[in-house]
Amino acid sequence: MNSESPMTATSPAGGAVIKRAPEIARATAADEDDIVRALLAASRIAYADLPGAETGGVERLIADMASRKPHDYRKLLSDGSSAIFIARVDGDVAGYIQPIYRPDRTGQLVAWHVLPEYQGHKVGSHLMRQGLEFLGDIDIYSITTVGTVAEAMHRHFGFEEVLSVPPDHDWRKTPPPMALAGLTAPQVPLILERAQRRLILEQMRAAADGSAAAGS
């Protein structure tokens, strides 16, 4: 995850009724507004308990991202420089994931967000599967905020802390946009090693096959 927008996730909100699996597709320029909406909504809830939130830090961060992120995603979606996949539920965008290749040809999840009303309905799982499938048989990294639901969700899917990253490394510090907003948000670098990735995908495929069989 880059320092612009740490990975977020929130606890299930239960606000949506999903009767079938979400449709996963590669995002286009037409999805820009929905992607930004998912980012802002997930961030607002995910960071609500961080130190500094009580003095308006989250709202300052949201305002900052709302001014910058539309341009960032417009560029990414228009020039095709990054793959972004969206999940649709009954035609509405419920979340997205952004997997990229690092210079060393390992992978990284730069973003993974689900709108709060769709959390707890496996939307994030479907997006994670797409991200892992897209990147292929390689080690995959991510960086997220310590102690959040996002960290727990990454660990649920097999990610483990990169212990070789020293405590004073920039990857472990509060990202500049969050610090400027007055939030304290130490980060944790994570890795899903390729062997574990294979295992997780096997489990996901088996679960999907079981759900399909049950619904037939």
Score class of each variant (00 low, 15 high):
37 R>D: 07
69 K>R: 12
189 P>A: 06
80 G>K: 03
190 L>E: 02
193 E>L: 02
160 E>S: 05
24 I>P: 05
191 I>D: 03
194 R>I: 03
116 P>S: 06
40 L>F: 10
215 G>C: 03
79 D>N: 13
168 D>R: 05
70 P>Y: 12
62 I>P: 00
126 H>K: 04
181 A>H: 11
209 D>T: 07
87 A>W: 06
215 G>S: 12
148 T>S: 12
46 A>M: 03
12 P>C: 13
22 P>N: 11
117 E>G: 08
199 L>C: 04
50 L>Y: 07
210 G>H: 08
11 S>D: 05
126 H>W: 02
124 G>L: 01
54 E>S: 15
74 R>G: 07
114 V>S: 02
203 Q>Y: 12
27 A>S: 00
108 Q>P: 03
134 F>H: 11
60 R>N: 04
10 T>E: 06
208 A>N: 06
84 I>F: 15
203 Q>W: 12
104 D>W: 14
141 Y>I: 04
204 M>L: 09
124 G>S: 05
149 V>S: 13
127 L>C: 05
133 E>S: 07
70 P>V: 09
207 A>G: 04
90 D>A: 12
93 V>L: 13
25 A>I: 08
78 S>E: 12
134 F>C: 03
106 T>R: 05
200 I>P: 00
147 G>D: 05
196 Q>E: 11
148 T>L: 14
48 A>C: 04
109 L>I: 15
114 V>D: 03
47 Y>M: 04
170 D>E: 09
106 T>Q: 04
42 A>R: 10
78 S>A: 15
8 T>G: 11
117 E>P: 04
96 Y>S: 00
85 F>W: 06
1 M>G: 04
43 S>K: 03
187 Q>R: 15
182 G>Q: 13
95 G>C: 14
151 E>Q: 10
198 R>G: 04
95 G>R: 12
89 V>F: 11
192 L>F: 14
51 P>Y: 05
70 P>M: 10
25 A>G: 13
89 V>P: 08
216 S>C: 08
189 P>Y: 06
5 S>Y: 10
40 L>H: 06
121 H>E: 02
167 P>C: 11
212 A>K: 15
3 S>G: 11
197 R>W: 09
34 D>A: 15
192 L>G: 07
105 R>A: 14
140 I>P: 01
215 G>R: 07
138 I>L: 09
93 V>T: 08
176 P>K: 08
63 A>V: 01
22 P>K: 13
111 A>I: 01
183 L>T: 03
122 K>D: 10
21 A>I: 00
120 G>C: 01
20 R>N: 06
16 A>V: 06
5 S>T: 03
104 D>C: 07
167 P>V: 13
189 P>N: 11
16 A>P: 00
67 S>G: 05
9 A>T: 01
85 F>C: 00
79 D>Y: 08
143 I>N: 11
153 M>P: 00
22 P>W: 13
